[in-house]
Amino acid sequence: MAVYKRTYKAYDGALTPAWSRFLILPRSAYGYVMQSKFLVAFRMACFFYPLGCALFIYLAHNLSILKAMNFQGAQFLQVNANFFRYFCAFQGSLAVLLTAFVGPSLVAPDVANNALPLYFYRPFSRAEYVLGKMSLLLGMLSIITWIPGLLLFLIQWSLAGSAWMQENSFIAWGIFIGLLVWDVILCLIALALSAWIKWRIAAGGAILAVFFAGAGFGAALNSIVRTQYGSLLDLRQVIGLIFSQLFRDDTAPPVPVANAWTALAVCAAVCLWLLAKRVRPFEVVK
């Protein structure tokens, strides 16, 4: 089937391993996602806080410089679990915004253009499709959340020494597990809504609405029924509870942390169910 011959010819070359084909989707989509200048600028802005944190850690370990500069508040510079918890909360919020920008372009174009049959008649499963689309967003979120978090932890370790590391190794696990769980939940919400809402702007709005409306409903439920379980509808509070457990916060949580884990599991299950209903090669009309 050479260009100049213009004849049909079958393919008889080597094939790639089946397990690696899901990686084709993020590779193909990444270039299109990064065409947006706004998104590039936003992703750059997401690194300002980690850079500030790195500077903070450096200064905290170089108090002599601060004293030489006659800085009075040097004793307040402490790098501890709370410092990393604030980092996780801040970067987690940026991750929500990034999800709202990137998420709608994941599945919606394929659904809107009826492209799903073209993926699924090939040796390519629905699970691989979801995994491929998810890995793009998960990669982008990881770069602004747990990866810089762990880098900050490493900087602190290198400056504070092994004794600090042995005492605070739970922080590293907290950063990694907490933010990875948060990223996965964000990806699933983005994919599910992107699969059901074809219009990108509406899908982006819906992703944000899940968090703000959930918080609103949760607060309303708490005040009407006089309970604290409404907090489980607010995903940011839910992940906050999980962070409090992972960072060994002594403050008593308003609801048991096990319930927060259950809420996230339910959220993930609902998203997967929505995806299973929508990510199909053809639409069943009842």
Binding site: Y11, G13, A14, L15, T16, A18, R21, I24, L25, S28, L118, Y119, R122, P123, F124
Partner: peptide, 13 residues
């Protein structure tokens, strides 16, 4: 090209 890759063709092919 993407559809070909999803069918198992290497990137260049």
């Amino acid at each position: 090209r993407m559809m070909g890759e999803l069918s198992g063709l290497p990137h260049d092919a």
